[in-house]
Amino acid sequence: MVNTQTNSGNPETDLKYRRKKNAEEMRHQVISFALMIVFTLIAFLAVGYEGFSAWFAVPFILVLAVVQVGFQLYYFMHMSHKGHEAPALFMYSGVLVAFLTIICFLTIIWW
């Protein structure tokens, strides 16, 4: 994908550029990996902690889950790279439709 593209004639520069790019990407992956572990720990703590009611804990861990999905998609599955516009469009459309369905169930069917 992006890190294998060679668009200057000079192989030295390309190699340097790729190394830099890869190092940067690696750093992002490690950071997001660490954050994901932290988020998971926080989620367990939030559920386990007596002081939080379910009305706080459930939405809170849902938010953490959404952030983790974002990390997964953008840092580990390279959705931030070029050439992923169509998949991104369709994923977000799908998310929108699913969200509408859930909102509908929560607001006008069950309550």
Binding site: V97, L100, T101, C104, F105, I109
Partner: peptide, 12 residues
Amino acid sequence: GNTIIWEHFFWI
């Protein structure tokens, strides 16, 4: 169960 669920799914 809830019979309205079918209607919503069907029309979605």
